[in-house]
Design a protein around this nucleic acid. Structure first.
Length: 634
RNA sequence: GCUCAAGUAGCUCAGCAGGUAGAGCACCUCCUUGGUAAGGAGGAGGUCAUCGGUUCGAGUCCGAUCUUGAGCUCCA
């Protein structure tokens, strides 16, 4: 009875006796056999050496698939551990997984690895790679494994082994003189690893717990060719140029001042203009969708925060109380208690619901000094916050509208790729688990109805309710949370919120917290990085620079400036006594979307010559043409 | 908060066998009035993050503090 191996393209191969995955690859094409890194058999990942002895679906992974990259980098991590053990035998190995871009391995060592040592390790890795050492899998019992790693003094491996059930089969992978506890699979041999770069080293706690010992982590990346490595290093270089902290300085958008305090942002005129444009658009969109805008204070009495539960659940993120005539006041870390107070200031009928209260509310949270990062992570920031108070049967509809609203708004700013997460009940939570389940299902149903791909973050919800988060990526591909839609079981009860139902009885409303941009600061940073500072022209602080060729055109330039401004265009005149090339260069570096060159010709013919940032000369056109072109949204 | 690294003019950086600071750009003045990414000359600008120590003498060595960066942990 032949063995039938089904392939992803729908075809199949028949074999009379068991074959290795590699053999199947060879039979498909020699090139595939060369490129193949590991195999997936009926959804389970296995080595290429794995012998297939029954009918099965087979997928071969190369460096082109995520799984292929994963295996490739994981094997490189093992190679790094081998090199480190050879060079520094006293070091203990711990764990070394593949990550989104590369891999790391944590080592227990007294002192950090220096740059020179990283180079040494990198060289040793290249040397070992060239030897084509096979990654040999071996399955042993837990007892045997304990003995092997105890003999080597690898305490961390023993700790990991200790948590594996006694009956499980343990696998080890050995390449050359290095043996590691590992589930696998791995590359067939080290020779597949052609280009290696160790990027940085830093401290990392064992198992990510700051109570544990700090280990030395080395990050690296590898590729099947030098060309791909060079491309990646070039990408890192380009990403650094798009860093919002650099752009913020270059374009004079914002600063953070040591004397004022870390994590506290100063918005310069150009940055403030962009923020104003974002916020104006935000307000208009919210009014269009039935939101009511509110304003609330920055501080509130201790009693308020006790009622809300923040002093119980959120105190470590709040700043110390300030004394006002003997009463404690806290600066707000969230806006919700204030919005609830507005709701509670009146009696509400079910006919009024849903009520949607929105505010660009500035909050202050204590963040540990080590986590601050440009505008991405600060101590004072403005949330585009809103609270939706609705009846239980309005919930699904509201959540759905919210998801659509969020995506629409993010798309309007140019974003196209989103990571969506559904976060469920954490260990420490308030509310009835049955309610949690209902709300979580509602969030899930909305996501599925709209047809969005999402990941479940089990236990990642807030203490007060489950949530949907939408993240967007920065220049380096790091994801930052923007939109968040959070269900709240906590505060409606604590603040005794209610509405009068059709039955003339009091009912508890449902409440949803939500932010679309997240924080204006973080959103602004991701926006800058996404567009490399070349903002869509509706967001540019200066949309057009008027450049007179000589001082003789200055009066005409001033007149145009005024005319354009009256039409709602943000423009300025570069009146310096410099050559046109110099003024163009300057406007280009400032990433101003349009330049309007005014010379003798233009003044006499009444036309304008337009130039677009990064595009170049667009030729002569009329005042109206320039206007419509510059004011268009795209 | 933890580990490591760094902090010199508005910006980017040089200076480090310890002998009281330098470049380019930006800025100001003057000359030049020039058609699509830098015209020329001159000038001004720094208690070398802060505080303390070692030394005849410290940007340079040591310590503490503050801030920044890369991670860890945590989050909008």
């Amino acid at each position: 009875m032949p063995i039938k191996i089904s392939l992803p393209d729908g075809s199949a191969k028949l074999y009379d006796q068991p074959v290795s995955a590699l053999r199947v690859a060879e039979d498909i094409s020699p090139r595939l056999a060369e490129a193949a890194l590991c195999a997936e058999l009926e959804g389970a990942l296995v080595d290429l050496e794995h012998i297939i002895d029954h009918d099965a679906k087979l997928v071969l992974h190369t460096f082109k698939t995520e799984t292929g990259k994963d295996i490739y980098w994981h094997s490189t991590a093992h190679l790094m551990a081998q090199a480190v053990k050879q060079l520094f035998p006293e070091v203990k190995v711990t764990i070394g997984p593949a990550i989104e871009q590369g891999f790391y391995y944590d080592f227990d060592r007294d002192k950090p690895f220096t740059e020179e040592e990283l180079e040494q390790i990198e060289e040793r890795m290249a040397f070992l790679a060239k030897q084509n050492l096979p990654y040999a899998r071996k399955e042993i019992s837990k007892a045997e494994a304990m003995e092997v790693f105890a003999k080597m003094g690898e305490d961390y491996k023993l700790e990991i082994l200790g948590e594996i059930p006694d009956t499980d089969v343990i696998s080890t992978y050995t390449q050359g003189d290095f043996i590691d506890l590992c589930r696998g699979p791995h590359l067939p041999h080290t020779g597949k690893i052609k280009a290696i770069k160790l990027l940085k080293s830093s401290g990392a706690y064992w198992r990510g717990d700051e109570k544990n010992k700090m280990l030395q982590r080395i990050y690296g990346i590898s590729f099947p060719s030098l060309k791909e490595l060079d491309q990646y290093l070039e990408f890192l270089k380009q990403a650094a140029l798009r860093d919002h902290r650099k752009l913020g300085k270059d374009l004079d958008l914002f600063s953070i001042n040591e004397d004022i305090g870390p994590g506290l942002v100063l918005w310069h005129p150009n940055g403030a203009m962009i923020r104003h444009l974002i916020e104006t658009y935000w307000k208009e969109e919210h009014l269009r969708r039935g939101y009511k805008l509110v304003y609330t204070p920055h501080v509130g009495r201790a009693n308020l925060w006790e009622t809300s539960g923040h002093l119980g659940f959120y105190k470590e993120n709040m700043y110390a109380a300030m004394d006002v005539e003997g009463a404690d006041y806290y600066i707000k870390p969230m806006n919700c208690p204030f919005h609830i107070a507005i709701y509670n200031s009146n009696l509400h009928s079910y006919r009024e619901l849903p009520i949607r209260l929105g505010e660009l509310g500035t909050v202050y949270r204590y963040e540990r000094s080590g986590v601050l990062h440009g505008l991405m992570r600060v101590r004072g920031f403005t949330q585009d916050d809103a609270h939706i108070i609705c009846t239980p049967d309005q919930l699904n509809d509201e959540v759905e509208k919210l998801i659509v609203f969020s995506l629409d708004m993010l798309k309007h700013f140019g974003f196209r790729e989103f990571l969506i997460y559904l976060s469920t009940m954490p260990d420490e939570a308030v509310g009835d688990p049955a309610d949690w389940d209902t709300a979580t299902q509602s969030l899930r149903a909305s996501l599925e109805k709209i047809g969005l791909e999402y990941q479940v973050d089990a236990g990642g919800g807030a203490f007060y309710g489950p949530k949907i988060d939408i993240k967007i990526k920065d220049a380096l591909g790091r994801a930052w949370q923007c939109s968040t839609i959070q269900f709240d079981f906590n505060e409606p009860t604590r603040f005794n919120m209610h509405y009068i139902g059709a039955d003339n009885a009091q009912h508890r409303p449902f409440m949803v917290h939500r932010a679309i941009l997240g924080s204006v600061e973080r959103f602004f940073a991701t926006l800058l990085e996404y567009h490399s500072g070349n903002l869509p022209h509706w967001l540019a602080p200066v949309q057009m620079m008027i450049l007179p060729i000589t001082e003789a055109q200055l009066p005409y330039a001033r007149k145009l400036e005024e005319d354009f401004r009256l039409k709602g265009l943000r423009c300025e005149v570069d009146s310096r006594s410099e050559k046109i090339g110099y003024k163009i260069r300057d406007a280009e570096l400032k990433k101003i979307p349009f330049m309007c060159v005014i010379g003798k010709k233009e003044e006499e013919s009444g036309t304008l010559t337009l130039r677009q940032h990064t595009v170049g000369d667009l030729g002569a056109m009329s005042f109206e043409d320039v206007l419509s072109r510059v004011l268009s949204d795209s």
